[in-house]
Design a protein around this nucleic acid. Sequence first.
DNA 1: TCTGGGGTCCTAGGACCC
DNA 2: TCTGGGGTCCTAGGACCC
Length: 447
Amino acid sequence: MRRAPSILHLDLDAFFAAVEQRDKPSLRGRPVVVGGTGGRGVVATASYEARAYGARSAMPTAEARRICPPGTAFLGGRFAAYRRTSDVVMALLRELSPLVEPVSIDEAYVDLAAGDHDLSVPGVTALALDLKARIAAATGGVTGSVGVGTSKSLAKIGSELDKPDGLTVVPAGSELDVLHPLPVRSLGGVGPATAERLAQIKVTTIGDLHRLSLVDLTTLVGQAHGTGLYRLARADDDRAVVTDREAKSVSAEETFARDLTDPARLTAEIDALAGRVGSRLQRSGTSGRTVTLKVRRYDFTTLTRSLTLPQPVDDARQIAEVARRLLGAVDRSGGLRLLGVGVSGLSPYAQGDLFAQALDEPTEVTEQPEPLPTDPAPGPAVVAWHPGQDVVHTGLGAGWVWGSGLNRVTVRFEGPRTAPGPVRTLRADDPDLQPADPPDWTTPDGG
DNA sequence: TCTGGGGTCCTAGGACCC
DNA sequence: TCTGGGGTCCTAGGACCC
């Protein structure tokens, strides 16, 4: 915790709904729910009018429809409009300080100590009131709640304390007085599971939490989490405001209107998801080594399967082939509710680069390892091997490409069905190695 | 017509290496 | 023949956040 209340947290009030009410005057004063409007949609944001009837974020939209009165507007959301409005607000924050950390589209921290400000309580109070007025003016009436304190944790709690359109300044020295009466759920990192564990030992407020020993707390909730909560209960939080965070993963997922079983449909969905992930990776100039498939079954059981390749990929087709292979080893009987495709282990390197190094081969930065010539020449076809591709080798059997370098290819030969088998590195022009049709996983046996 | 989509971080076990 | 740790990587799942 710092010596002055120099951390500001801004949380825009019912943001998506507020933008809708701003842009459509007929919605003002009426309950508005923004989110998925289909049968399986959930609420992203409920206006304060809708909250009065019990509508909440993450609630199934179907339930919100039951509890909200006739005349409630259910909207699908216009993300470009939200993004534009958010950008206006973030620009105002950057006028206060170069150290602005957007947490999400409607939330950010500002380190006022990096600007030229009076950090007394009256000083930051005046600053925050002025900020709120300028946000409302610049956005056409969208309001925000502001907390100012000596740490991120206190600033965030402050912005929650007086919503909507609120302001709370927590003076240095008064942190524990503010924290201790609050429920443990007010602390970042305490969700339903942790709150339940704490409740079982009669810990419900942050004051209760303060009385637990470090050993008891880490025994209860784990080393890292326990240590973090121990410190937060003491207002011991020196986390910095971080302006730029590198993304660590990129993913796309989709819940289907009806559960899918048709293999062709599932394949098409994977291709579409991989396409979204691949283009986002390429746009950001990154690629990643680990491809993850997420599956939610008809009964909502959810699992992930991942595979780490020897070199990063950003190509949609290659991501899709790996994801399809992972799906082939999952029990699809009963139907799938959701599919997701993700890439993690991101690095700024181009595809192929790392693997060439890993194979201790000369790295030709300016030359792509693929494609090799593909003229319809007589003899064994020269092919550009790519991860996920199905192959067959005379003698070694069926497998699939795990990685490829300038003139070598690493193949995972299969055990039963799509289980990972032994890995062999072969010459890329090995005449015994040929592309093959993908394994048949259309029978719903689960593999 | 119960339960989205995009992320982050942590834990734990097994493989593998020294 | 019996018994080590430590460190890193990979995989899977869970909690949490907005």
